[in-house]
Structures are given as C-alpha cells and as structure tokens.
Design a protein around this nucleic acid. Structure first.
Lengths: 222, 222
DNA sequence: GCAAAAACGATAGTATTACTATTATTTTTG
DNA sequence: CAAAAATAATAGTAATACTATCGTTTTTGC
C-alpha cells in the first residue's frame, strides 16, 4: 500500500490516533473545528458531538486539548520536513533550497492523497493561528523533555545547516531560522488581521520576498 | 507632582485602574502573579485573594483576564515608546537610534520611581512569555477595532520610519519591525527554555547583536 | 459638615469546562 | 468462539468564568 506515515513522538498522545478509524476521524474533525472556532473555544465535548461519538472517547486518544494541539503542530512540521526533503532533491545550491523552503513555509500545499484524513491547507491555517500556544506555557520545560517541540527544532537545524553551507562563519543559524519560521506564520496572520504590521499587499508573494531577502542578507553578512 | 502617565486606550478596562489605590494594587499584583504562575493558571479569584479583596472587585476594573493581559501589554509598549523617545533625543543618526531601540527591546529596564506600582522588569518577563496571546484569538478583528494593538503598531511605525531614513527604498519596514520586535521576545524565551532554537550563549548581548545585524543588513539591501 | 454618589467587600448563584469513573455493548483478534 | 480491546452512554466532581445583590465604607461636591 502506498501509505505515507508522518511520525510523531508517542508522548504526544495517549493512544495513537493514526492506528484506528476513530483516531483518524478525531484528527480530521479536530483540525476542521479548531481552525474554524479557534483553540480557546474548542472542547473535547464538541469534538465528540461532531463525530457522533463522545467526549470520553476523545480523551482516550489525547490527554487534553493542549496535547492535541501539540500533536497536530508536530504532525505539520514532520510533514513539512518530508516535503522539503523531497523538493531539495531536485535542487542543487543551498540558496535555491532556502528559497524553496521559504516558499513551502508560506504557500498552501497541495493535498496529498495518501493521507486522506488530514486536510493540509486547513492544518496550515491552524498552525498560523495557534502555533506559539504550544510553547508559551509554564509547562514548557517539562514538555520539551517529552519531545513536544522536536518537529520545530529539526526544521530549524536543517535550514541552519544550509545557511552554514552558504557562509560557514555565520553566527546565528538557529536564531535566524526560528525567527524566519515564526515570521512566516506571523506575517500571514498580520496580513489578514493586523495589516499595519506588515507590508504585504499582493498576498503571499510579498511575504516570501520579504523573508527571502531578510534571510539571504543576514547570512551573507557584508 | 512628578508623575509619569502612560496612556492606555479606555477600551482596555472597565474602570481605569490608574485612578484608584485598589486599581494600582490590582495592576501590581497581577503582573507579579501572572509572571509567576502564567496566564493560563491565573484567575481573578486568585488576584482577589492575593490582594485581600474579592474576585468581584477585580471584575469592576477588567472585563476578563484577556482584557487585563491586553492592558498590561499595551502599558508596556506605551512605556517603551516613552523610553525610546527619551533616548532618541540624545542620538543623531537613524542607525544609532535603531541600535538603541533593539537594546531597549531586549535588556531589562531600570525601575522608574515615578511609577511605584509597576515592576517594569517583571512586566517585561510577562511580555516575553505571553504577548502573542493577545492577538492569536478569534476575537482579533473586533479587538483590533477597539484599539487593543495600538501600542505594538505605533512602535512598528516609529522604527519603520527610522529604517526609511536609512534607505527610503526599503520595501518592508512594517514587516521587518513586527518581525524584529517579535523575535526580540521569542529569542529571549528560546534562550531560556528551548536553547536549540537560538544561538545566544552569553545571554542578551548575543540576541541584540543577532537582531541588529539582521535589521541593518535587511535595510541596506545590497 | 453633610448628603449623595461612588467604591468596596461579602456572599450567593449559574453555566460551562475539564476532567475521572463506571458499566454495558460492540468490534476485533488470536 | 472466547477473550481482549474499543467504544458509547452516562454520571459525577472540582474549578472556572462569570453575574447579581446588598450592606458598609469612603470619597466628593456643595
């Protein structure tokens, strides 16, 4: 079978939702509901009702809403990493790869038919709207040890190494890409909701150009 | 009297906390408690008890916890704006001003004795730990119209204008400074909690240098 | 200095949330 | 086909996020 599996740390669920039908339906419905009503307004009871199942069944898969969000966001980073690896094979220079990586961060991605239960476009919107909430908590240190942020860290590492290929003396590869990844999300949010905080007019192209310039100018420190 | 007043939009409170003794004690205690236990774990009941007052009294000043957070964060931006204006008077070139602005964003500030009820250092920690939560909600558009984000926008504008003095053709002044301000906060957070996402070792100096390089290299687009 | 207004404290109450627990039924699997 | 696993149904609890009422204290304007 032609199945693509994105692996997510087993600390991010009670029971692996990818292994059962109900689990996949929980993922699918959670993405839709959370994107629609926002993290704060979502409850496990609402997910249960939407699935014509129950609150208790959702709790069997995830300890709480925060863990569910962390799962979904890690799934997104894992999936982005796979996409990047695929695309990088076609490209030769590190600069081309970085340019493409920034596009992948900003542009919505095509549906992957091998993963019917995840709507990647909706998931990307969810990440834009919610991603800092997984680490901006008092539990961050404990959750870091459980691997809640591995997906994010791996992408930063990968891109940081590309930067060092361009300029081995560049001092801030991790800071730069945690900033760029975060800005890729927040600029999308600002363009839509707080336009005075961005200069993007024609949409996502402007964001890509802004981020690409910032990235390459930083690395090639004159 | 030698009083400095930071003005915050009256949509950010029910009853102006700066005008009464209890109001000021609410501000003071809220900053301490929220920094200590985190936004999610704080409740108005806990604030009331800590003040030897009541939950209902806190509700007389703020509609809810989210409004309280928005108030505190706007107060912080307003106060930073005042500090920047003071410092900029001593400096001549826009580049010097930008360098100083980035320092002000990252380094803890001295206590201002004219404002005894606000602990600026603790407030800065609170902003680092919580600031995206005021806009990452489904209510963002409505709250934007109420002026919930004016403080942030004004600082971005001010810094963006300095960038245009250096290079009038720079295309992304708002995007750049919303990114830099946000990165100033998140890099502090990462350095402490998720060090693989930053390269800062010796602390805040590294963050200042990273941000300053990124800013100036972006503006002086080769 | 006094009356009216405002602020505050004390208390009660409600709907919702975030769970945990139990049990009966259905589905899966060896 | 029996045992195990998964699910649905239901109940219950502590905490949260408020709203409302009312009596007392404090402030203020005249």
């Amino acid at each position: 079978m032609n199945v693509l599996n994105i692996s997510v740390s087993n600390k991010l669920y009670n029971k692996n939702p990818e292994e059962t039908d109900l689990g996949k339906r929980i993922l699918s419905k959670s993405i839709g509901l959370m994107a629609e009503m926002g993290y704060e307004h979502l409850t496990f009871k609402k997910i249960g009702i939407a699935l014509e199942s129950t609150e208790a069944s959702v709790y069997r898969y995830f300890q709480n809403k925060h863990q569910l969000l962390a799962y979904l966001i890690n799934w997104y980073w894992g999936w982005l990493e796979v996409k990047m690896a695929q695309e990088f094979m076609m490209l030769n220079s590190p600069e081309e790869k970085l340019r493409r990586a920034i596009q992948l961060l900003v542009f919505p991605m095509d549906k992957d038919e091998r993963i019917p239960h995840i709507n990647e476009g909706t998931l990307q919107k969810l990440v834009v709207a919610e991603y800092p909430k997984i680490y901006l908590t008092k539990e961050v240190d404990a959750e870091n040890e459980e691997g809640y942020f591995l997906g994010y860290k791996r992408i930063c590492d990968t891109l940081g190494k590309l930067a060092l290929q361009i300029n081995p003396k560049y001092k801030y590869p991790h800071s730069l890409f945690s900033t760029v990844i975060s800005a890729a999300q927040s600029q999308q949010f600002f363009t839509e909701h707080l336009p005075r905080l961005s200069d993007a007019t024609s949409g996502k192209e402007d964001i890509v150009e802004f981020l690409t310039e910032m990235t390459l100018n930083s690395i090639q420190n004159k």
